[in-house]
């Protein structure tokens, strides 16, 4: 009796997991920047190197770029980690510990939410960030990559 009772609970758990994994996958982020002029498109590896390796100069853009991220745990950051960086959050945190304490690099500046992100990007030339797909953008902000 008690064992039979477990089956529906396990089924519900599995379905919940599948559904949540699905809804997670359905969400997307777009990479946005304030670089003025013509529309520019960057590759995934250019965006990744900007956020993870501090490579701020790209041929396509005249100004030096600087990356802006969301805080750990934010949905947009999780999607960015999965679709652009390709590493889990815990690995990213240990990577930044290594870079920081060996004097190599500092992690990107972080803002708390989407409105702060839009505010910062729209007022800083060269700023690059990410927001959920479909977020309304001011005219000075353009999408430079859609993973």
């Amino acid at each position: 009796m008690s064992r039979l009772f477990h089956i529906p609970i396990i089924l519900v758990l599995i379905i919940t997991l599948l559904v949540s994994a699905n809804s997670y996958a359905a969400q997307r982020v777009v990479i946005i920047a304030n670089i003025g002029g013509e529309p520019v498109s960057l590759s995934r590896s250019q965006v990744r190197d900007l956020f993870m390796s501090g490579i701020t100069r790209v041929d396509e853009v005249e100004v030096a770029l600087f990356p802006v991220g969301m805080p750990p745990g934010h949905m947009a950051r999780s999607i960015f980690n999965a679709s652009v960086v390709g590493l889990p959050e815990s690995r990213i945190q240990s990577y930044w510990a290594q870079m920081k304490f060996s004097g190599r690099l500092k992690p990107p500046l972080e803002v708390e939410n989407v409105s702060q992100m839009i505010e910062l990007i729209s007022t800083s030339k060269g700023a690059v960030g990410y927001v959920p797909e479909g977020t309304k953008l001011p005219t000075e902000v353009q999408i430079i990559h859609a993973p």
């Binding site: 945190q93 240990s94 990577y95 510990a97 290594q98 304490f101 060996s102």
Partner: peptide, 10 residues
């Protein structure tokens, strides 16, 4: 160079 920073490795 980060041997003391245990958080940096598995």
């Amino acid at each position: 160079d980060v041997i003391d920073v245990g958080f940096a490795y598995p």
